[in-house]
Structure formats: structure tokens, C-alpha cells
Nucleic acid binder design. Structure first.
Lengths: 131, 131
DNA sequence: CGGCATCCTTGAAGATACTG
DNA sequence: CAGTATCTTCAAGGATGCCG
């Protein structure tokens, strides 16, 4: 779906906030903006793989329990949004390699944060023990 | 869907890695684990609202363009996973307030990272100008 | 006010077979 | 090997109406 307004820049970093919204007219919420592009679990996991190293198609398929169709769709989407790059080597058999663009690498902090939050969750899961 | 294996603890922090996986038998990937719980865009946005401050139901509805049905579903889910707390004040008219639990507050770094990544994206969007 | 219940639309994903 | 095409299933979400 599409959201348009709200989001008053939540915890608004330490700086900024000085001259109100002067040049920026109707900036959408950054969080929403990014979630509208990579809200799929697979997008995150694909990006995580590529953060480790470049990958060929079948390597991604082996790393993730994803169908070829969905994988292709997600890859095309990430490519379209300029997060990954698709490089085709005209060989036989075909060889395709995916890598992160600078913009793609920008989500590393997000992946890292997810990693840590997940670890924290898992460790207190063993103590508290909920579902 | 359900994933079960893979994830070799990606960029595995600086330390650890010493005694292999001794006590941990089949730990799922933390990232997957957490994404299986809050992969919905709405979950993130609800958590973001509650990170700012506690909220009543109608406040969340006003802040987010979400249907009452979906909002309730997401709230129940977050509650079930122990990320938020639901407090009912037996008044007339009814009054319900949602707040974050410690576990819920754990995802603040994730939200912050999303915020920054989104801002970076939006700012180079204006320069490069892709869809 | 908070939130079910119902109906309906969409999209995400899997499985499978097939092509260059 | 990489990717497309087709068919199917299922969950997410919206809209609306009703209730305590």
C-alpha cells in the first residue's frame, strides 16, 4: 500500500531541526520509504548474503530456501531500486554475479541491528521461554 | 514460510568464534528469527510510534494509515511476542494504552538504522533521481 | 472508544516444467 | 546455469457494519 504523510521525524537525531523544513517540501517518512522497498523478508536476507560477499545465482539459492521465481523477482526489484548490481558473463554455461551498490551497502547498519536484536531476543528466550 | 538452517553468523562480531558452537545446538539465524516476527511494515511503524511515547489505540490509527482490523492484528501479534504491553483502563468510554516492553525497546537500533538508511537514500535520490 | 466479524482484493510465495 | 511461464495457495490488508 501507499502511505503519504505523517512521520514527524521521530527521535530526530541530535542535530538538525534548525531551519524547519525549508528546502524539503513533502518528504515522506524515511522509514516508510525504505520499508516500502525492502519490506520482504527475502530482500533483507539477500542483502545480508551480498554483504558477506558477491554471489552467483545458484549460491543464493543454496544459501536461502527460496524458489527460483521469488529469488528472481526480489533480485530484479533490488536492482531496480539501485541496491544491487547484476553482472552477466557471456559464457557457456551462463554466469551471473550479484553485488551490492553503495546504496545497498547503506543498509548494513540495519542488518547489523537486526542481527543484534535477534541475538538478544534469542538469548532471553531461553530464560523467559515464551513462544 | 519457515526457514530452518543456514546463516553462519555473517560478519560474526570481532570476538567470539573461539569454542565453536558448544552449548548452542541448532540456533536459528537471529535475523530470520526476528524477521519472522516483525516482517510487516506495520509492525515496524507501530514500534516506531511507541518508541516515541505510549499510545492509545486511536492515536495509532491517526498516526498511521492503517485499518482498524490490521492494527489490532499487528498489536496482538506484537503483544504475543512480548514486544508491547496492552493496558486496559476500565472506564467509560474504554481506554487502552500500548507501551513497549524491554524487548520491544530492543529494536530501537533497528528503527534508528532504518531511519538513517532511509534518509541517505532520500537525499541521494534527489541527486541521482531514479524511481 | 476499542475492537470483533464478515467479505473481498491483492500480492507474495511455492512447485513444477520448460528454454537459451 | 540462469531464468521464464503457469497454476495454485495463502496471508495481509482494506472496507464496512455492529457491539459492549
Amino acid at each position: 500500500m501507499k502511505v503519504t504523510k505523517h512521520c514527524e521525524t521521530p527521535q530526530a537525531g541530535p542535530m538538525s531541526r534548525g531551519s524547519e523544513n525549508s528546502t524539503e517540501t513533502e518528504q515522506p517518512c524515511p522509514i516508510e520509504y525504505i520499508l516500502d522497498r525492502i519490506s520482504s523478508k527475502w530482500s533483507f536476507l539477500i542483502l545480508r548474503e551480498l554483504l558477506i560477499d558477491n554471489r552467483r545465482t545458484h549460491e543464493l539459492q543454496e544459501a536461502l530456501p527460496i524458489s527460483t521465481k521469488t529469488l528472481t523477482i526480489r533480485l530484479r526489484e533490488l536492482e531496480k531500486y539501485g541496491m544491487i548490481e547484476r553482472k552477466v558473463y557471456p559464457e557457456i554455461p551462463p554466469r551471473v554475479e550479484y553485488s551490492l551498490t553503495p546504496r545497498g551497502r547503506n543498509i548494513k547498519p540495519v542488518i547489523d541491528a537486526l542481527q543484534q536484536a535477534g541475538e538478544a531476543w534469542l538469548s532471553d528466550e531461553q530464560v523467559v521461554g515464551d513462544s
